[in-house]
Amino acid sequence: MARPTDPALRGPTPLPPERAAALSGLYAAATGRARRRTLAGFAALAALALLAAFAAEVRPLVFLENIGKFTAYLEQIWPPVGLEHPLADLRAWYWGLPGWLGLLGETILMAYLGTLLGAVAGFAFSFVAAANLVRSPALRFLAKRFLEVCRTIPDVVFALLFVIAFGLGPMVGVLAIAIHTTGALGKLFAEVVENIDMRPVDGLSASGASWVETVRFAVLPQVLANFASYALLRFEINVRGAAVLGFVGAGGIGQEFLAAIRSFYYGDVGAILVMIILTVIGIDLATEQVRHRLAGPEHDR
């Protein structure tokens, strides 16, 4: 590219005045239109927010008055561990550690079993709900609606119903998580299956493979890494969800936690909350590592 050597050409050349006026007029009109559209969007959003605030009984004055209570609450559940006897304080704070650890283990096991059962069911349903593998629209429609119902009804509602039918205990939590997970994972799995490369499928069905053989040798190798990655993500969500299923009597650490909150045992609330947070963050980090490794070979290609 030739550079202009003449110093007069280096700087910006001013436009003729009438041309400049016309261009800046056009510019003002264009930005004005965009600005008006943005303002209208904001106005609509503000109107909706006011309506929602009315429906949700927002009381800013109460909020401002009581915001001190929030910090006071945080202060009360703050670890009562001093610098003088940190170990003794810690031991006193976690007086119920063995029992809590057992309940936490139960929570994680609930999440694991629920995720596993839900993933297996979602796995089966996803192949029926995928548009590129199933010819019958009626079957596909039924499978999709079923998954939608499983997904939309929150697991706590299932747990409430199951507690009455099966009795209290972690089995109820497992079933509730499993049904919700079936809906959530079934949808994601079906989307993965719909996005596969169809050439291996064509190749196998052209050489005489049955439907099951086609799914096993042409579809599964393409989707398994993605499926595992989604299932791990769901496992993390389910651990968080399982921690509160105990609120309705479905096992795990939730019941103990709710009791501590309701009876204002601030030390216990803080201790259990810290345990839940650490567990969730730990599982989050661990599953992220595994998911990166699963995604590895895909990215290299």
């Binding site: 609450y73 921690a243 609120f247 909150i261 839940i276």
Partner: peptide, 14 residues
């Protein structure tokens, strides 16, 4: 990592 229901219990106090 704190579930919505736990947040709700905290805010109810406030």
């Amino acid at each position: 990592s704190v579930d919505v229901l736990i947040w709700a219990l905290i805010w109810i106090n406030v």
